Amino acid sequence: MAVDPEFVEHVLDLFLGLGPLRTGRMFSGVAVYAEEDAMFAMISSSQTVYMKSDAATLPAFEAAGAEPFTYTRSSGERQVTSLMSLPESAMDDASEALDWARLSMGPARAAAAKKRAEKARKAARKAAKA
């Protein structure tokens, strides 16, 4: 099931205060990026918005009643606590949604930096072999 384009637009409107945003495919949903490559949110095909989280931000999400992204594999259900649901109250409150987005930017920046470093290491190894 694809993500409703109108829902994607609504979510992007909620996060406008972060500056320029872009989207990309992620699983059967849509990834939302700020600052070029910092993926701070994901919109699932079930129209749930998940925010990037880490050990430092997880308690705030849990206190707000957020749930982790969950999917099923042949080995059973898996929970991904690095993606926590946007609290329902923020879905109609751009100010609150923006607060959650700003909280998610720390983990998103860290993940983007790690990904860039890994790409650089791979490129360096490839260049060394050439």
Rank of each mutant, 00 (worst) to 15 (best):
P20H: 11
D4C: 01
S44W: 00
A56E: 15
D37Q: 08
F61M: 12
E36S: 14
K115I: 07
R109A: 02
A110K: 14
L58R: 13
R73N: 10
V49F: 00
V11D: 10
L98Q: 00
P87V: 11
A56Y: 04
M26P: 02
K126G: 09
A66L: 10
Y50N: 08
K119N: 09
L14V: 02
K114N: 08
D13W: 00
V8R: 15
F40C: 02
E77L: 01
M105L: 15
A63I: 06
Q47T: 02
G29Q: 12
T70S: 09
L58T: 07
R78I: 10
V80N: 10
V80S: 08
D13N: 12
F40M: 15
S53W: 04
E77S: 10
E62P: 02
G65R: 06
A123R: 15
D37F: 01
E9H: 10
S45I: 00
P107Q: 11
V49S: 05
V30E: 03
A56G: 08
A110D: 12
F40G: 11
F15N: 03
F15S: 05
A101I: 14
E9K: 15
E36W: 02
Y50G: 09
A110N: 14
P68I: 12
P87E: 12
V3L: 05
V11I: 14
A127Y: 06
M1T: 13
L12M: 11
K119W: 01
D37G: 02
A117H: 06
F7W: 07
A130L: 12
A55P: 00
S46G: 04
V11L: 07
T70R: 03
K126Y: 07
T48L: 06
S85L: 00
V11Y: 09
S46C: 02
A66W: 07
A34L: 04
D54M: 09
E35R: 14
G29H: 05
Y71H: 13
R22F: 01
M51Q: 04
R109T: 09
G29Y: 03
L86H: 05
D37L: 06
A112F: 08
V32K: 01
R121I: 03
F7G: 06
A60M: 11
L21R: 05
M91D: 01
A41L: 04
D93Q: 05
E62I: 12
D99T: 13
A90Y: 01
A90K: 00
E9G: 01
P59R: 01
P20S: 12
L103T: 15
A38V: 08
S74C: 06
A31P: 04
Q47V: 02
K126E: 15
A130G: 13
A124V: 14
T57C: 13
M91A: 06
V11M: 05
E77F: 02
A38F: 00
L12E: 15
D54G: 11
Q79T: 04
